[in-house]
């Protein structure tokens, strides 16, 4: 299985997410993560899809089938471009008086931030690639992870050319 991050520009209209989600489920595509948000253009939404495929043929099916949707404007496979990929995670970890110093240590090593503290827990914020986030989660597991929220990956190409002009 190989993973690819697709930047999908779509019309910012009602029903778009239904169409994209409907297609993914109907064609039984393997989606690792999906995230959507506004862009520099008010009528365009950018959907970031991380898809995992067995073959090039499967990848081209994902791209071509998505491309058929009327409200899809453009699809670029950013994994095949020189690009920066990031994901944001919030992790709530059990933190007692005894363990808190250790956790802060870990947070510093990973260059993460503590964004909330109570007597029983801390909430950690980290931005990075998937493997870095996975590594932090792994280390924090022994302290007791209460819950995790991840955004899924987003990406931009390097250099001045935007996806819409690629």
């Amino acid at each position: 299985m190989k993973k690819f991050l697709l930047a999908v520009l779509v019309d910012n209209k009602p029903g778009v997410l239904t169409h994209v989600a409907g297609l993914i489920s109907r064609r039984a595509f393997n989606i690792e993560s999906i995230s959507a948000g506004y862009t520099e253009e008010p009528d365009v939404t950018r959907i970031n899809i991380v898809v995992s495929v067995e073959s090039e043929q499967e990848l081209s099916q994902v791209v071509n089938q998505l491309g058929k949707l009327i409200d899809v404007i453009k699809i670029v496979n950013l994994t095949l471009e020189d690009s920066i990929e990031r994901e944001l995670v919030l992790i709530k970890v059990q933190a007692s008086k005894e363990s808190r110093a250790d956790i802060i240590n870990v947070v510093n090593i990973f260059r993460a931030n503590i964004v909330d503290v109570t007597t029983e827990d801390v909430v950690i914020e980290l931005t990075g690639g998937e493997s870095k986030i996975d590594a932090l989660c792994e280390v924090l597991r022994e302290y007791g992870i209460i819950e995790i929220a991840r955004t899924g990956a987003i990406a931009l190409s390097r250099g001045p050319i935007p996806v819409k002009s690629m």
Binding site: P14, G15, T18, H19, G22, L23, S25, R26, L69, I70, D71
Partner: peptide, 14 residues
């Protein structure tokens, strides 16, 4: 109906 017909239409609108 938009939800139901999404996988079986070329496009749909509400």
């Amino acid at each position: 109906i938009v939800g139901i017909t999404t996988p079986i239409t070329k496009h749909n609108y509400l």
